[in-house]
Computed example of a mutant assay.
Amino acid sequence: MTLSAAHPRGGHGWQLILADLALILFLLALSALPAAEAESGRRLADTEARERDALGMLHAEVAPAQALFRPIPGGPSLGAWLAAQGPDPRATLTIFAVHTRGSEAAAWRRARALAAEARASGVAVRAIITAGMHEEVYASLAYDAVIAEVAS
């Protein structure tokens, strides 16, 4: 048995080194991503906080729904439903109106009608109107936390 038979020459040495270097470069780039994303997120949050501070604004965080209202034929009106929930000054009613292309005005009218009914009940109201695959209007009653940004 000769040395060449035990170790065939294939010329794979430089290819393995190149593959190792490529893998090392990939792992280094991958490990740097979370730090870069965190830094860009901090810069964006700092910019938004400065803008809010400059305007003297507060923003609300949309909390998970405590109760959900969907208008159905023969069901209670929004005003009757809100009365059954019990008055709470901490609660905010968010009206969600989802519309398809071309039905933006109709979604706005439905959301505005529900908002007027809710305001008559004395509840804080906001409306969120978005595009979607189907039309839908519903309301979410939640205890949103108002967050005041503190300048640092």
Rank of each mutant, 00 (worst) to 15 (best):
A54M: 08
A120R: 12
L114D: 00
Q15F: 07
A83F: 02
E117V: 03
L21P: 03
T100K: 04
L21T: 10
A45K: 06
A84R: 15
D20A: 10
Y138R: 12
Q66R: 15
A32L: 07
E135S: 07
A36E: 10
L18T: 09
A67K: 09
M57F: 14
L18H: 06
T100I: 02
A124K: 07
A60F: 14
R109D: 07
L21Y: 08
A36V: 13
G11D: 05
P34A: 06
S103A: 12
R9W: 09
S103N: 12
S77W: 07
L21G: 10
D88G: 03
S140V: 12
A142I: 03
A151R: 13
G79N: 13
T130E: 13
S40Q: 09
H99I: 00
P71E: 02
H59M: 04
A63D: 04
D144G: 01
V146L: 15
V150I: 13
R52L: 14
A65L: 00
Q15M: 09
P87H: 14
S152D: 10
A107Q: 01
A6Q: 12
F69S: 05
Q66N: 10
L82I: 10
A97Q: 02
A63V: 02
A113I: 01
E48N: 11
A45E: 11
A106K: 07
E48H: 11
D53L: 15
A106D: 06
F26K: 08
G79K: 14
V62K: 15
R9M: 09
S152R: 14
E37F: 07
A151M: 07
A142N: 01
T94F: 02
S103C: 03
S77F: 06
M57E: 15
E48W: 13
G86W: 06
I17P: 00
S77R: 13
G79C: 05
R43P: 00
G11P: 02
L18G: 05
E48L: 15
R70G: 01
P64Y: 01
R70Y: 14
Q66W: 11
